[in-house]
Amino acid sequence: IMLVVVFYAVYYIVLSICFTAFRLEMLDGLAPFDFKTNPSWINPNYLVLLISLEITYFVCGLLFVLIVEEWVWDYAITVTAIHIIITSAVMSEFPLMPHWWTALGAALILMICGGQILAYCLFKNNLIYPVLDDF
């Protein structure tokens, strides 16, 4: 639960920064769950949602390392699944837009890779490696 709270706190902070940087009026509280925005490189609302999603996942991957130390990929997948469930509940339909799934998949890869690399760098002496002598 703590990681989900961290995820959404970071998401809203990054979303606010992106809206300010793009000089847009803040959307309603549904912005992190909006998968119906028209995907276009000239649509600033779409760009803000896309950029904030990617930055949030990368930053959370790094923050999750500080909280759980190992198994960042497991927590990343769990938080993403919870985000999909909450998104479906808030928007009252399951997201079927391919652009949303592509952005979410790229963000998940960023979270896992960034988190796992940082975890290895910070905790490489504490990681548990299987012994294959008797295998």
Rank of each mutant, 00 (worst) to 15 (best):
A81F: 02
V79G: 00
M91T: 07
F94V: 09
A89N: 03
E93H: 08
V59W: 01
T87G: 10
I85N: 04
W73H: 14
M91Y: 00
V79R: 07
C60F: 03
I55Q: 02
L96P: 05
W100C: 00
A89S: 06
T56E: 01
I67E: 13
V72T: 08
I84C: 07
V72Q: 11
I84H: 04
L63Y: 14
T102F: 09
W101S: 11
L63M: 13
V65N: 09
P98M: 09
T78A: 06
V68R: 14
W101P: 05
P98N: 14
H99S: 10
T78M: 13
T87E: 03
F64I: 07
I85P: 06
I55Y: 00
T102W: 07
W100F: 15
M97T: 15
W71Y: 15
E93N: 11
T80L: 10
S92Q: 12
A81R: 03
L62P: 02
I67N: 12
T87P: 05
A76C: 06
A81I: 08
S92Y: 10
W73V: 09
A81G: 09
S88G: 11
C60D: 03
H99V: 04
I67A: 14
I86G: 08
M97Y: 08
V79Q: 03
A106K: 10
T87F: 02
I86D: 08
T87N: 02
P98W: 10
L110H: 01
W73M: 09
E69M: 10
H83N: 09
P95E: 00
H83F: 05
L96K: 13
V59F: 09
T87W: 02
L96I: 12
Y75P: 04
A106C: 08
G105N: 13
E70H: 10
Y75S: 13
L104N: 08
L66T: 03
F64K: 08
G105V: 13
P95I: 05
I84N: 00
T56S: 07
A76Y: 06
